[in-house]
Structure formats: C-alpha cells, structure tokens
C-alpha cells in the first residue's frame, strides 16, 4: 500500500505539470527546450539563493519570528524574480509567441521547484508505513505553486516584454506581481506568527492561487486586447 500511496502523492505533485504541458499548445510548439532551460536557471537561482541565505541570515536557535530577518528573507526571495527575468528575457527562445513563452518558463520553473523541494521528502516519507496527510497536502501545495509561478511569469512577461501596455493597468500589474513574489513570505508568516496548521495554510494557498490566477489572466487579456486593437 505504501508504494501505492507514494505513487498517488507523486501523481498529485507532478501530474499537473505534465498535464499542463500536454493539454495546452505548449506541446504543439515543442517548448520543452525552453522549459528545460528555465529549470536550469531555476537551479542556479536556487544555489545563489542558498548562498545568500547562508551569508546574510543568522541561524536562530528558537523558532521566533524576527521581522528584520524575515524582511531580509523576503528580499532574498526576490532573487527568484531576477531569475525569472533572466529566463524570460535573456534566454534565446526559438520563435515562440510571448503567450507561450511565459507559460513555458512558468511551467519549467514550477516543475524544477517541485522536483527540488518535494521529490526527496516524498520518496523518503510517503513510502513509510505510517500514514499522514502531509504528502497529499504537499502535493496540493505543488499545484498552487504551479499556478502562482505561471501567474507571476505572465505578469513578468507583461512587465518586461510588452512595450505598449495601458498606463492605467501598470500599477495593478506591479501590485499583483509584488503579491505573487512575496507569497512565500506570506505563507511563512501565516504558519509561524498566526500559527496556522498545514492544512489551513494549504487551503489559503489554493484559494489565493485561484484568485491570483484570475487577476493575472484578466490583466493579461486586457493588455492583449489593447495591443491587438
């Protein structure tokens, strides 16, 4: 039963990425190369992030919430955005449209994140005999994370690649992108200060991901409509 459980959790964690790739036109335009390149960028970004965290962050003995440290952590979290920026603008993509580019980048990014953060605990934990909900929740979290990343990538493509966007929408775009970029800090805040338990946090993340995806999609469509006119 345990291998079965592992299979289930892995399906929940990594299935949506595969589905996303195959169901959307990404597969038809053969954007796998872009996804892989993004994954490599993610890897490097994660390394840089680790080095920064190790350099600038004090290791606290107790699990207290230090606002200064948290702020620093959030700032280091913005390295992710820089990585996304690099992946989106500096990588040479084969001729794919912007719509597909941001999706491919977001997907590759989220997939690399899932593999790096969730595969090892899953392999070690979910095959154990003891049943916990943790790995199922972790899989749901991976889903939410995919949505967040794709949303952020879409907003990023608006910010960095599109020249003629409506002026009125720019503050909204930046606000949404800011929220998305600070999402890890927000969840960490919820978990540690408000002392929410894991299911509650995951519920919040799912809800937030739906809301943010909706907002991003509206912004993206608004810009697209404007440019197509």
């Amino acid at each position: 039963m345990t291998v079965f459980h592992f299979f289930n959790c892995a399906l929940l964690t990594f299935g949506p990425h595969a589905i996303y790739y195959s169901a959307t036109p990404l597969s038809e335009y053969d954007t796998l190369g872009t996804c892989l390149k993004t994954a490599v960028v993610y890897l490097i970004t994660a390394l840089i992030k680790l080095v920064c965290l190790a350099t600038f962050l004090k290791v606290t003995e107790n699990d207290s919430f230090d606002p200064y440290q948290e702020l620093l952590k959030a700032l280091i979290g913005f390295i992710d955005v820089a990585g996304l920026y690099y992946a989106m603008t500096q990588l040479t993509h084969r001729n794919i449209s912007q719509t597909h580019k941001f999706q491919a980048v977001g997907l590759g990014w989220a997939f690399a994140d899932s593999v790096l953060h969730r595969l090892a605990p899953l392999w070690v934990g979910a095959r154990g005999l003891e049943f916990t909900w943790e790995y199922i929740l972790q899989g749901l979290e991976a889903n939410a994370n995919l949505v967040f990343t794709v949303s952020l990538a879409s907003l990023g493509s608006l910010m960095w690649l599109r020249k003629n966007k409506p002026k009125a929408l720019i503050p909204f775009i930046y606000a949404c992108a800011g929220i998305l970029a600070t999402m890890p800090s927000i969840t960490s805040y919820l978990r540690r200060i408000l002392d929410w338990d894991f299911p509650k946090v995951v519920g919040f993340e799912l809800l937030a991901s739906v809301v943010m995806a909706f907002l991003s999609a509206q912004l993206f469509l608004a810009c697209q409509r404007r440019s197509s006119i």
Partner: peptide, 20 residues
C-alpha cells in the same frame, strides 16, 4: 504505525485521476 487502508488509496487515486 497508523496506516491508511488500500481502499483509501484507491479512492485517492480515483479522485486524483478525475482531477487530472
């Protein structure tokens, strides 16, 4: 160990399958 049943895992698989 507190364990989940095979039935639970089957149901989970089913739910996941439909979700995907």
């Amino acid at each position: 160990y507190q364990v989940a049943s095979v039935t639970f895992d089957l149901l989970l698989l089913l739910a996941l399958g439909s979700y995907l």
